[in-house]
């Protein structure tokens, strides 16, 4: 429980950094670090398979996409960047305050949850769950990936061209 609390606090702090940092590249790296921490939490909770997916896909693949987007879009000139940074600081300064306030409120009220937990699942193997019980989800995943393929084909094409 101690380790878990530390990991959760770190998760909030790192994602805060990812949201607040002025450089886009650092934001992408911060997000990858958030994913990595989430992986550790999942592992702690005993979900190794989901953790592997999170690590390879979110911390890996999505970071690659993000970094390539950042590198394909050009940087602002330094002067413009400093100006934007000023206005950004003004806009984002309230976020930590808001977080602290929300935390304080939640720590003081502490809603009286009386969780009535259901009976534990008969199937404890995630592979059986995914391949036998929830096979339709796999079909849905395949369709989502197909949509993604079309997305790459259409959206990452160069400028509009006439004819085929």
């Amino acid at each position: 429980m101690m380790l878990l609390s530390v990991l959760l606090i770190l998760l909030v702090l790192i994602s805060l950094w990812a949201v607040m940092t002025p450089l886009l590249l650092r934001a992408a790296i911060g997000l990858a670090a958030t994913s990595a921490l989430l992986t550790m939490i999942m592992y702690q909770l005993g979900a190794p398979l989901a953790a592997v997916f999170e690590l390879s896909v979110c911390a890996g693949l999505i970071s690659v996409v993000f970094v390539s987007v950042v590198s394909l879009t050009h940087r602002l000139p330094l002067k413009e960047f400093m100006k934007r940074r000023q206005s950004r600081i003004k806009r984002f300064i309230f976020l930590p305050l808001l977080l602290v306030a929300a935390l304080a409120i939640m720590l003081t009220i502490k809603l009286p949850f009386q969780l009535q937990l259901p009976a534990a699942d008969k199937i404890s193997d995630v592979r059986v769950m995914l391949w036998n019980i929830r096979r339709i989800d796999l079909f849905g995943q395949i369709m989502a990936l197909l949509a993604g393929v079309y997305g790459v084909l259409i959206l990452f094409r160069g400028r509009k061209t006439d004819g085929d």
Partner: peptide, 13 residues
């Protein structure tokens, strides 16, 4: 809730 297998398959999706 002790339904980690279900939660994992959902998270993968």
């Amino acid at each position: 809730s002790g339904h980690l297998a279900l939660a994992q398959s959902i998270v993968i999706t």
